[in-house]
Design a protein around this nucleic acid. Structure first.
Lengths: 242, 242
DNA sequence: TCTTGCTAGATTGTCGACAATCTGCTTGTC
DNA sequence: GACAAGCAGATTGTCGACAATCTAGCAAGA
């Protein structure tokens, strides 16, 4: 497979590269929740000035995976059990809607793509590449959103996904036992290929394949043992709203 | 009850002020869709350097009301009829969900706040202040999201709202006849106070008070007469995806 | 006339330095 | 010893200048 290394920026704009690098670092859990991002240090490591880095961080703040406190710093968002719960319940509603929109648009290309992504998940599972396993699973579930032909819905789901991916990565990282080899997405794919839309929606609402339940118990266990003390200043709860 | 909470301290940072200024300019239609934002000019007008301005613009890009093309410029998003349609349909789904979550949490404070916001709309209507009328109407509809106790849902709706507000402002600005004096939100408020949740949800799904239908015909009329040629370079369709 | 290459101007992207602000420690006083 | 004032150190916010890139216009050639 493509061995992807940190190569000097070559693509389009430095800012874009930085965004991609930081996002990946956060979503894979290399940067832990609550951790502070020191601009000077990161800028030096990337051999970039602070200007494009700050712009990139501003994007990720709006994307919802960083939070910023003026003159104090920018931090990776904290993961509260309530957040996961909220994201979970919203995700179910959106899934139902996406299925409804996608349903009449399904065609051979859709089924082929569905199989392709399903295969990618199984491959990652065989490789025991947990990070890629999460990525591919989310991509599999994302197909109905890409197919639904509703740009606002797609964008909404992508925002949600960022955080979900982060949560799952943290979970996987916490329990370093190998992931289950069973194919948990089998039912999902089968129902999407079938003729009963309501059955697919019911499955989305009740049994969604992603292991949210286990994720929740994990998150709750984290909270019981107090806020994780990370190096660097710790973010205080802010009063803010608009 | 001296109920006076300390409001969050004013943004001590220029960036925050700039974001607010720009957002308001876009949402009220002072900056038209497709229009290019010249950094040098705006920075001079605001008596600010380009750095905080660019960071502010980056936020608004992620917020979905600006789009950026490297080395070409940053533009106010274009309004396509499909976008409004997409936002409309998603909004209905979210409304239904928000009502479901809010329903068991309704209490006296909720009803009071509902009346307060309803009154604000009527006041703005009497004042013939169309901009404020849109703001207050959206705030009225936003109550169920604030009350639902689901931060992800709330955030999602706020993003959606930004664009809706912009669309409505454009619409209002196009037809400069005075707005209807009839109280179109009466039914909505009454149902939210009532005992039949499904009736409220049905109303949200079928009759939502905000005049989307009229907005759509307006948007379609815009598209038929070709893309509006604004001063400044015009944004090309970008290939980009992630 | 049409095409091709070049130049000049304007605009965006990036950099290094300075100013504003926060944090922790030291110092002086009681 | 406790406590407030004040002083470094570090970090974020902002600025002005430079480099990279795009656009428009013009000239040379087929």
């Amino acid at each position: 497979m493509g061995k992807l290394d940190f190569s000097p920026i070559a693509d389009t704009t430095r800012r874009g590269e930085i965004v991609a690098l930081l996002r990946r670092a956060i979503l894979t859990g290399q940067l832990e929740p609550g951790q502070k991002l020191n601009e000077l240090r990161i800028a030096e490591q990337m051999r970039v000035s602070r200007a494009p880095l700050r712009e990139a961080m501003r994007e990720l703040v709006q994307e919802g995976i960083l939070t910023s406190i003026p003159y104090a710093g920018t931090f990776v968002i904290d993961v509260a059990a309530k957040d996961i719960d909220d994201a979970y319940s919203l995700n179910k509603v959106l899934d139902e809607f996406a299925i409804e929109l996608t349903w009449p648009l399904r065609d051979q290309r859709f089924f082929d793509e569905l199989d392709r992504r399903h295969e990618a998940v199984k491959q990652a599972t065989r490789d025991l590449d947990t990070t890629r396993q999460i990525e591919t699973a989310l991509q599999l579930h994302g197909l109905i959103y890409e197919w639904a032909d509703n740009s606002v819905l797609l964008e909404t789901w992508q925002r949600l996904t960022s955080r979900l991916q982060m949560y799952f990565a943290l979970h996987q990282r916490a329990r370093n036992e190998p992931v289950p080899a069973a194919d948990v997405h089998e039912t999902y794919v089968r129902l999407l290929k079938g003729a009963d839309m309501h059955a697919a929606q019911r499955h989305a609402r009740e049994h969604i394949d992603l292991d949210f339940e286990e994720l929740l118990t994990y998150a709750r266990s984290l909270e019981s043992k107090g806020a994780g003390a990370d190096r660097g200043g710790l973010p205080r709860k802010r009063p803010g709203e608009a």
